[in-house]
Design a protein around this nucleic acid. Structure first.
Lengths: 205, 205
DNA sequence: GTCTATACGACGATAGAC
DNA sequence: GTCTATCGTCGTATAGAC
């Protein structure tokens, strides 16, 4: 059973994540987080010693789900399978954790001023491991000799864009909200493009 | 000959663009813009009636260069040529107008709260025209039947990421500053992937 | 643990001399 | 057209009652 403390902290972090994603750190007022969470503002400061501390807590909570997708790169031995699972997972994250993605994107875009050195290292390590894995497939002749780093950047960018820049996607597609078929279409196109680009033959879904 | 008024306005807009790109609208202090431009803060307010008016002026100044790349979609009749010119142009913009790209990305990520209805329409119209052009090539059987909207999103995302998330790119590549060869490698990979994905044969550079 | 009322600092904006 | 000095507001953070 969760203590009242844990329950409230979670509520505040979750609400704060939404507002930070929407407005960015500086434009977010603690009073707005409080209102949206249905709590008086002072309550926020009872659980978090400052707005920045709350923001860091949000950043922490956001990183793990965003890194989950990486597992597919390791768990699958076959390049085609690994890449298509990875892309699908990244798209699913853009759909299910859009706020998390936006908070993180904002942080990165401004040079990650609030990201702890530990997290920086963790992200770098994950990226390097994925790059090494892809390079291994290239060396084994199991895929075309693409630059693994830039391949990662393309996959990250084109999947995360459906979360970070969802406003633009909705404007162009004319949707009020992105639906399952939109994410599926995105995943299909990105997967096709990447697999053809890497010259590996797709596995069945 | 530029009037002193125009010269100062330009200096302020240019400086403001850098700071807004770095910090975002809310986190930017007008005093910082003033300091960086080597002017007293009151001077900013002599030329712009408010921080928001200055920001809107920056947004205005930023849109035209960002849309220039689109011309390649119309001016080239051959899909392969058009796409590779377009990607190269987008990458060049990410290199030469990184600040502009970041300001714009920030605005879009938060739902474009400051973008004028005219600019919204203009962007939508440009996008729709590009999409129609690509659809035309598909209908003519000159490229594989890809979804033109999602193809645009992939191209936008994967080229703009080199400006908007340059911090991350530099972290992973270990560079202190991205060099010509990095942008070239990016353009090459994205172009290869898109052309293979669309099943059109590359033109010579 | 919850909440009201308030202190305090920072920053946008301006008045007014030069 | 330039700049100093200052005002007013807004928002973070806290004191202290319940």
């Amino acid at each position: 059973m969760p203590t009242i403390r844990e329950r409230n902290k979670r509520l505040i972090i979750k609400t704060a994540c939404q507002v930070f994603a929407d407005k960015g750190f500086a434009a977010t007022k603690t009073s707005e987080i409080a209102d949206k969470a249905g709590l008086p503002k002072a309550n926020i400061y009872y659980y978090f010693k400052s707005k920045e501390a709350l923001y860091r807590a949000v950043l922490d909570s956001v990183i793990e789900p965003l890194l989950q997708a990486n597992s597919h790169i390791y768990e699958q031995d076959e390049p085609a399978r690994a890449l298509q699972d990875y892309i699908r997972a990244k798209i699913r994250i853009s759909r299910e954790h859009a706020d998390a993605s936006k908070v993180f994107a904002n942080e990165i875009m401004h040079g990650a001023p609030h990201l702890s050195p530990q997290h920086r290292e963790q992200l770098k390590a994950e990226a390097n491991a994925s790059v090494a894995r892809i390079q291994g497939w290239v060396d084994d002749g199991r895929m075309a000799p693409v630059d693994p780093q830039h391949l990662m950047f393309v996959i990250w960018a084109s999947t995360q864009t459906y979360a970070d820049f969802d406003w633009q996607i909705m404007q162009i597609t004319g949707r009020k909200k992105l639906a399952a078929q939109d994410y599926d279409a995105a995943a299909k196109l990105i997967t096709d493009m990447v697999l053809k680009g890497c010259e590996v033959v797709p596995c069945e879904a």
